[in-house]
């Protein structure tokens, strides 16, 4: 685009200048929106930093009617659920990519990739709905423990949501791999499995890292699945069959029940933490990408 920069400046009329200013404004709207979101979150969360409010927030008990507004159970819930669903979805996603790269027969890998693409279009609320009526009753019958709405149910459902994210990123990275290197390694006598272990996976560790970070971000940022199937009790879980509540679900629940101003403080504190997580994920991705250039 620099090639014709010298040509156009002389003939730029008023209309053209107006159009260019509009394009600039349109581009700035994203930045303004992010700024506004951050401003609103901080503005409404400001009372938190009053000392005794802060201590109330940093406790393990959420009992709004007894003046206890601890947010730590929800932080733990989000982190635990994010990690557990990634522990399931990440190896699975990489497994699918290995299968596609050449370990599995062509029909199997083609079918799997097609299904993974279709999975990206499934609304989260539909996953949640099916889980409530299929997975939750199954877990209840199978383990004879509680209602079935649990950390385990949310983990299984959420891993379906992040599986396509992981798979498509890693697969794109594997596909970038130069076909000539593939030929060369095959000629050297590497079987597909040896190529994967010794050449492809080590060379694409950046894509693997990016997939992990982005998948974790998606898992923590999801609201509807955890709201629908995790049971939503604000507690630290002692087993996978216990109910948990995530930060995102907490936001949705507090808004719908309106429990006074101190509850709203915790709402915006949760908002700031979620904003922080997405900013961190973004920063990490930039860091990973910057290293590759």
């Amino acid at each position: 685009m620099d090639t014709y920069r010298c040509l156009n400046d002389t003939r730029k009329g008023l209309v053209e200048t107006l159009i260019e200013s509009w394009l600039f404004v349109a581009a700035m709207i994203s930045a303004i929106a992010v700024g506004a979101i951050l401003f609103f979150l901080i503005y409404f969360a400001w009372p938190i930093f009053h000392e005794d409010h802060l201590w109330k927030l940093l406790s393990w008990y959420w009992r709004p009617f007894q003046d206890q507004f601890g947010i730590l159970p929800m932080v733990a819930g989000s982190v635990l659920l994010g990690i557990s669903s990634m522990l399931l979805a990440y190896p699975m996603g990489i497994g699918v990519c290995c299968c596609v790269y050449g370990l599995g027969p062509r029909w199997l890998s083609g079918l799997t990739l097609m299904i993974v693409r279709i999975m990206t279009s499934v609304p989260t609320v539909v996953y949640g709905f099916v889980s409530v009526f299929l997975l939750v009753p199954f877990l209840r019958e199978f383990f004879y423990h509680g209602s079935g709405f649990s950390w385990l149910a949310a983990t299984l459902t959420l891993s379906l949501l992040v599986l396509p994210t992981v798979t498509l990123i890693v697969n794109a990275q594997f596909e970038l791999f130069d076909p000539e290197i593939r030929l060369a390694t095959t000629a050297l006598g590497f079987s597909p499995i040896k190529q994967l272990i010794w050449v492809v996976i080590p060379a694409s560790y950046k894509g693997l890292l990016a997939a992990a970070v982005l998948g974790f971000g998606r898992a923590v940022g999801d609201t509807i699945i955890s709201l629908m199937v995790s049971g939503n009790s604000p507690q630290f879980p002692h087993s996978m069959l216990d109910s948990i509540r995530t930060l995102t679900a907490h936001v949705a629940l507090v808004v719908s029940t309106e429990a006074g101003s101190m509850a709203y403080n915790s709402l915006f504190a949760a908002g700031i933490m979620l904003f922080g997580v997405s900013a961190l994920v973004n920063g990490a991705l930039r860091f990973i990408r910057a290293g590759s250039e």
């Binding site: 994203s30 949705a252 997405s278």
Partner: peptide
Amino acid sequence: AVDLLAGMPSIVMGLF
């Protein structure tokens, strides 16, 4: 800014 907006959990957008 666009990357940040793209990565924002949708519940934060609702909270906004």
